[in-house]
Simulated assay, not measured.
Amino acid sequence: MKLLKTLLLLGILLIGSNSQAMLVTKHAFEIPHFKTENGAVISPVKVGWEAYGSLNADKSNVILVTHFFSGSSHAAGKYHESDVAPGYWDAIIGPGKAIDTNTYYVISVDTLVNANVFDPNVITTGPATINPATGKQYGLTFPVVTIGDFIEVQKALLDSLGIGKLHAVIGGSMGSFQAIEWATRYPERVARLIPVIGSAYIDAWAAVRLERWAYPIKQDPAWRGGDYYQYGQPEHGLTTALAYIIQDAVYPTGFNMRYPAPETDKAPHRDILASFSAWEQLMAHAKLRATMQDANHILYLVRASQLYRAGMGDNWQHALSKVQAKTLFLPASGDQLLLPEMAKASAEALRAAGKTVEYAEIPGIWGHLDGVVGINAVAENIRSFLATE
């Protein structure tokens, strides 16, 4: 039952702490006119953000948390005491925890085109947003946005708060791309960098794997070329895409513990059209997630992730040479999505450029998701790294 609750809460096995959680507030930030890396202007851009701890007098104690593909800025605490679970990294963010809010001021920001656009606690601009110029949803007229664009929105927020330098930036999965891009693009502003279950690049293998997440949406007739808002979501395509996302994020050991084995099913032995129970259950879990998410937003997040390489230029290894931050890579040993080998290659590129790099792996049976559910295993690595001079 606990494992089922885990799936329902995050959609990808997020386990929340049952301890007394901080109460947090979601804030809104708006940029009247935002110019993307592609030269398009979005007017306005709105994102949500939340913070934990207190900002010190010289604003030198800020840690930026950048979130993963299906996540949001809700990294820790609860909005209400009655919330079922706290934010996804509540195990390491809070008073006395690895990211100690008695010491640090921790900020997290909803990304552009956030997947959870229908979650009332998420504020984001994307294809499902009404375009003021037309009075209709942007749909696919929304410009392609990149990890670099996510960074520029976050920078605008920090600038508005008078925060010029980050004690650290830490992020998991797609959040690791953002963290690395921060340290590459604005090296003088980032003192410490912690990419969790991440990489400084996406290669062809990873990009094609991510295309599997987009394909079911685009093949669903109900998607209508992205212009479906007056008709309703392309439910089958979106649900299938989310099922692939859930499976890709979980190592086989954990997956097989959660879902029934093929030999327990009778119907597939007799009927070629019969589905396995594991698939039906996976689709049921994905359908729950689909109620908060938008199909076009998934496509835009897939593309932003596919396009990522440090510096967003032709040579990500050279771009890493700009990094000034001390770096701690924390891949998950069983990750089948962003392989540990990708984190190792990224770390080696930094070392080759003469940078200070530490490396430790997160153990566990959940693979990529160990970067969320198993993060406490490396809590002391994070705590000690943040304290380094």
Score class of each variant (00 low, 15 high):
95 P>M: 06
333 S>E: 15
143 P>Q: 05
55 L>P: 07
312 M>G: 00
322 K>H: 14
196 V>I: 15
296 N>I: 01
40 A>Q: 11
309 R>M: 09
306 Q>T: 07
107 I>P: 01
265 D>C: 05
188 E>P: 04
96 G>M: 07
43 S>C: 09
381 N>E: 14
278 A>I: 00
292 M>S: 12
334 G>F: 02
178 Q>S: 13
227 D>A: 12
157 L>C: 08
160 S>T: 04
58 D>T: 12
337 L>G: 04
266 K>N: 09
25 T>D: 15
313 G>K: 03
231 Y>A: 15
19 S>F: 05
41 V>M: 06
146 T>H: 07
338 L>R: 00
148 G>L: 02
20 Q>W: 01
378 V>K: 02
250 V>R: 01
14 L>N: 14
16 G>I: 03
13 L>K: 07
142 F>M: 09
297 H>N: 15
152 E>A: 11
285 H>K: 02
18 N>C: 06
78 K>W: 07
28 A>G: 06
123 I>D: 13
157 L>T: 11
17 S>D: 15
264 T>P: 00
194 I>T: 10
231 Y>W: 14
273 L>W: 08
88 Y>D: 10
348 E>W: 09
286 A>K: 03
15 I>V: 10
150 F>S: 13
104 Y>Q: 09
328 L>S: 07
385 F>P: 08
166 L>S: 02
61 N>W: 03
354 G>Q: 06
149 D>Y: 01
66 T>C: 14
347 A>R: 02
105 Y>S: 10
243 A>Y: 01
233 Q>M: 12
258 R>D: 10
137 Q>K: 09
276 F>E: 15
308 Y>S: 09
272 I>F: 00
177 F>L: 08
151 I>K: 01
273 L>G: 06
351 R>L: 08
342 M>I: 05
15 I>P: 00
311 G>I: 03
126 G>R: 02
149 D>C: 05
53 G>T: 12
30 E>D: 11
284 A>G: 09
252 P>K: 05
79 Y>E: 13
371 G>E: 15
146 T>D: 11
292 M>Q: 12
40 A>G: 07
107 I>R: 01
357 V>Q: 11
125 T>V: 14
387 A>F: 00
32 P>M: 05
371 G>M: 06
343 A>N: 05
